[in-house]
Simulated scan of single mutants.
Amino acid sequence: MKYVIRLFAIVLLLAGGIALARLSMANHELQRQITQLEAEVGRMPIEDSERVHLVEIESPEVPPEVAARVERVWQFRCYLPPDYGMMRFSGDGRVAEEGLYFQGGSSSGSGSPSPEAIHQLMTVSFQKKGDRLEAFHAFGGSSGTSSWGSFDVDDFDDSWVVQKAVSSSRGPRSFDHETILPLLKIYDPDSAEEKQVAGQPVTTYAGGLFVLCPKSLNAEFDQLKRGETPAGFDPSWVAGVAADE
Rank of each mutant, 00 (worst) to 15 (best):
R69E: 00
A67R: 04
V52D: 03
P45E: 10
E56W: 02
E65R: 03
P63Q: 03
V55K: 03
P82K: 07
A68Y: 00
E50A: 13
W74D: 11
E58R: 15
P64H: 01
V73Y: 05
V55C: 10
A39N: 09
G42F: 03
S49C: 00
R51S: 07
F89S: 07
Q36D: 11
V62C: 08
E61A: 13
R69Q: 08
G42M: 06
F89D: 05
P64M: 08
V55H: 12
W74C: 02
R72S: 03
R69A: 01
G85I: 10
V55A: 05
P45I: 02
I57R: 14
R88F: 14
I57D: 05
E40W: 10
P82Y: 04
E38V: 02
L54Y: 07
T35S: 12
P81M: 02
Q75E: 15
H53E: 06
F89M: 01
F89P: 10
I57L: 12
R72C: 05
P45R: 12
F76C: 11
I57H: 05
F89E: 02
D48P: 09
W74T: 00
Y79Q: 05
Q36R: 14
A39H: 07
V41L: 14
E40F: 06
E56G: 10
H53S: 13
I46E: 04
M86R: 14
